[in-house]
Structure formats: C-alpha cells, structure tokens
Amino acid sequence: MLNKLLSGDMPRSKILAVLLLGILICLAFAPFLFPGVRSVDTAARICVFIILVASYDLMLGYGGIVSFAHTMFFGLGAYGVALASTHMGRGFDALLVGSVSGALIAALLALVIGLFSLRVRAIFFAMITLAIASAVAVLVSQMSGLTGGEDGLSYKIPRELGPAFKFYDGTVLGVKMNGKLLKYYLVFFSCLALFLFMLRVVHSPFGRVLLAIRENDFRAEAIGYRVVHYRVAATCLSAAMAALAGSLYAIWLRYVGPDTSLSMEIMIDILLMVVIGGMGTMYGAVIGATLFVLAQNYLQGLMNVAADAVSGLPLLPDLLNADRWLLWLGVLFILSVYFFPTGIVGRLRKGR
C-alpha cells in the first residue's frame, strides 16, 4: 500500500526514511507538537516551499531545464487568489477561482515561453526566463491600481479559515479548535496531495522520458521522442504546480506583495533548497525546504545563544552576532555542497 502511494519510489535508505517520516509527523501534528504562532507559521511555510521546490526540481532535476522564472509562476498563483478575493469577496469560490485561474495562466505563459524559447541552448533559455520574470515583477510593481504596487494587497479569506471561527468550544491538547487550525490543515493536505501527484508524474512513462532527455537529448530525439514537446509539457506542469503553491501561500498569509512572491531572493532560495536536498529526487525537495526554512527562521536565535555562551572570549561573539546569520547560512551551504555534492538525499542513497 505504501509502495503504491509513493509511486514505487521508496527512500532506499533507512536514515532517509526516518528523516522523511519524522518531517511528515512533525508537519502533520505541528499545531499540537509545536504550539505557537511562529512555529505553526514555519510549518505552513515548509509545506508550501516543499511544493515550490519540488515543482522546480520537476523542471530542473528531471527535465534538465534551467529557468529563472519560477517565482513569476509562484506569484501568478498568489496574485490570482488575492485579486479574486478582493473582487469576489471572502468566499471559498473566490479561493477556487483564483487558484485555478492562476494555475491556468501560469501554464499558458509557460507554454508560450517554452514554444518560443526551448529550442535555443540552455543558457539562452535561462536568460530569456530571467528577462521575462524581471519584466513581470516591474509590471506588477507599477500597476498599483490593480496589484497594489510595492505595497501589495491585503484581503479577507472565508470566515471559516479565520481565528474568530470556532468549530469546537474548548481546546484539544491546549490548542484552540478554530479556523486558523482548519487553514493550516487545508495547506498541509493540499501540499501533501500535490507532492504525491508530482511523485507519481516523475515515476510515470512521461517522467522516464524526461530523464532520458536530461541524460542525452540527441539520443532521445533519435529514437523518436519529440524533445521540445516533452520539455514544454514539463515546463507547463511545473509552472501550474508553482502557481498552486503560490495560491496556498496567499491563503495562509492573507497578503501578497512583490517581496513575498516575485522577488529574485525567493528564486535564489529555491535553487539553494534544490541543491541542498538533491536534484532529480522529489524527496530532496522535502529535506532541502525543511532545512532551509528552519535555518531562515531559527538560525538567528541559535546564534544569539551561541554568542552569549562565548561572550567572555575574543572575536567569537562578533563572529556569532545574529546580524551575520546570512554569512553562516552561506557557510552551511558551501559545506553541504562540498560534503554532499549530489545533495543530502543522493548522499544517503549512495551511502546505502
């Protein structure tokens, strides 16, 4: 049953299996295991970024397609929910219309970009996607009447997903049974379904052809596969999944702006998560996103504790100052690439 659910792709490493199971349990019961606004928000962000990173790995790790426009698709999904909620009101119909519209527009835009650009060499395609993503980000910032510009959009979501709504009086294990809990599990189960879907795709005949194209596109073309068609299809599917991740992120935050959904910083973060977890493995997205989001949220706090512990020593307190957390995040990334060149998942499987 488990093998069928995971599409035949078992972890193939006891350590990896334990890590994945631990992450699944922690995310599934996060509101009860880690009560608190910040911890639940971190868990929701991990869920969303797992889907975002997995959707990018579908294109890069399996299709061998380098793109810098993934945050653009992510932003389309987020703005789809924001605009639908703004103009249609706080209903589930607005969330559905916004999510589906964002995914369709993202897939259509990816289709246009793919048909016109995927015939060129990889580096030129990457530059084209970077130019288009930058143009869209500037356009969103300037269309303040529609998108809110640099200030973004704040909107209302269904009352049933807000903290004021209570579906049970009292608490369970100290947790209030309110709409925010429902919103978290909406994000969690949606992300779980999307992840299992992508896991199924990459282990289908379509996914096997993508791997063949990644390894040798000339040979794949020679034996009868239309390489451009498969790459365009992978790009469209990846874009739609990224847009759905953006929709879930918008539902969770109840705010959308250029910095939260379209910035180049998010694109760099996605690349780091893919490399840390391991390219060409859906499980790498789980490991990479979890480690990176946890580091983003808690590394500064850990550095403060470490700085206080060595306060009597020379130089070390300055090096461990919380303001230098990006420096140490970069060091951690360099070490992970050096010791795990195929990513954490690849290293664990190779060690087995």
Rank of each mutant, 00 (worst) to 15 (best):
V81G: 02
L21N: 03
F74D: 01
V232P: 12
G145C: 02
A245L: 03
K156E: 12
Y168S: 07
L96W: 15
T42R: 02
L16Q: 08
Y155F: 15
A289S: 15
D269A: 14
D318V: 10
S67D: 00
A44C: 10
A243H: 04
V100I: 15
G80I: 09
L319R: 01
G346N: 07
A240Y: 09
L83R: 08
E150C: 02
H70E: 01
S85C: 13
F189T: 10
A107V: 11
G257S: 15
L111N: 10
I25W: 11
T290H: 04
G102Q: 01
G207H: 12
A43C: 05
L316C: 07
F68H: 02
F74I: 01
E150R: 07
D269N: 13
I65E: 04
K176R: 07
K14V: 12
I15M: 05
S85F: 03
M127A: 10
A133V: 01
A54R: 04
I23E: 10
W252Y: 14
G91Q: 00
A322V: 07
A220M: 03
A137W: 10
F124R: 00
R254K: 14
S141R: 15
C236Y: 05
P11N: 13
L2M: 12
I50N: 05
D169K: 12
L244G: 11
C47G: 04
R121D: 10
M279F: 08
L76C: 12
L76M: 15
G170C: 10
F167C: 08
G75S: 02
L109R: 00
E215R: 06
A131I: 11
L146E: 05
Y184I: 05
R208E: 02
G284H: 13
G77S: 06
G77D: 07
G346V: 06
Q296K: 15
R347A: 15
Q296I: 02
L186K: 06
V305Q: 11
G64Y: 11
Y283C: 06
P317F: 10
K166W: 05
K350H: 14
D217H: 14
L199M: 15
R90I: 01
F32G: 00
F49R: 01
V48C: 12
S85V: 04
R38V: 12
P158I: 01
P11E: 13
Y168N: 03
E160K: 08
Y225D: 06
A220I: 02
L291A: 14
Y56G: 09
L76I: 14
R90E: 13
L237Q: 12
A239S: 14
A233H: 13
V53W: 04
N216W: 14
A43H: 06
L332I: 10
V305T: 08
Y184H: 03
L327E: 02
P341D: 06
Q296A: 07
V140H: 09
D217R: 14
T71I: 03
A43M: 05
D41A: 09
L60Q: 13
L327I: 09
L5E: 02
N304H: 05
V293Y: 05
S134H: 11
D9H: 05
A250D: 11
I344T: 00
P258D: 05
R254L: 06
Y230F: 15
N297E: 14
